[in-house]
Write a protein that binds this DNA or RNA. Sequence first.
DNA 1: TTTATTATTGTATCATTGTATCATTGAATG
DNA 2: CATTCAATGATACAATGATACAATAATAAA
Lengths: 150, 150
Amino acid sequence: MPDLHIQLDFGSDVPIYNQIVAQVQELVLMGALHPGDQLPTVRQLAAELRVNFNTVARAYRILDESRLISTQQGRGTYILGTPDPHKSEAARRRTLEELARRYRDSALGLGFSTSEALAALQALLSTAAEEPSPAERPNTAAENGPQEKV
Amino acid sequence: MPDLHIQLDFGSDVPIYNQIVAQVQELVLMGALHPGDQLPTVRQLAAELRVNFNTVARAYRILDESRLISTQQGRGTYILGTPDPHKSEAARRRTLEELARRYRDSALGLGFSTSEALAALQALLSTAAEEPSPAERPNTAAENGPQEKV
DNA sequence: TTTATTATTGTATCATTGTATCATTGAATG
DNA sequence: CATTCAATGATACAATGATACAATAATAAA
């Protein structure tokens, strides 16, 4: 759990929670925080910064909504995996193949044939015609990161 | 002791224990788990899912209270009689569709298109040509399950 | 076999973490 | 002034984790 060295300016007109948001974003961008890293708890950081922990929680929630971190009740908050660009194309491909294997095995385990599994996927993809552009979609999933407290 | 192939989404707002409950219900409903089958121990499943075993225990307790499983201190947890003995074909179909949805969403989360997801599955199914016939799968069912002293 | 010991299983209790809701503050505005 | 509203604080809560415990099984000892 790294010390974030966040510096607040209580005289500023920019709200505390926004200062926290900005500085965490900065730390991630500069590479001081890596995917999977656990952030201080809302109460720890709040004590360090001499603010109410709700203010830290509010900052964390904003960062969570922007998919930069993952806040998990009872577990903590973790830096979320960077969207895509850092993962090599080969690694992405291997992950996709692993997902396909899992889907096939699950279907077989339920007594379906591989052709039925394939047909089910085709049916799903044809019904949901509107396929969101990967560029626009705010990276809903991938959630690889935070479950392991590194 | 079957591997349940439970997949958790730590970023979701639905609690872990509810995700476990839902997926076990699913597995029973579609016939992947039969009366008498022993579930993984709370610690085994917890280690596999990277969560605290109390979380698994909480899920098991909920399933026990709904009379779907029987948790027995010192013995383990076992599938009870299914409330609906005829696992409907519709339920199996719904489960397959849910699995397909998960596969698609995971692929999209990795930045792949739906067509790429489909192609990956097709490639996998073509390479592994040996497909076990569903008819051959013997019902590994409850024939001699570990007598539940309920 | 019988008994004692050890291991494994689920249970109970509390601590820790983030969340939800409302109260308070203080500055902007009329 | 009074009003309003965003920012922050206080409190209660839900989800998860850590630890000790009790019940059952498995094994060893007598």
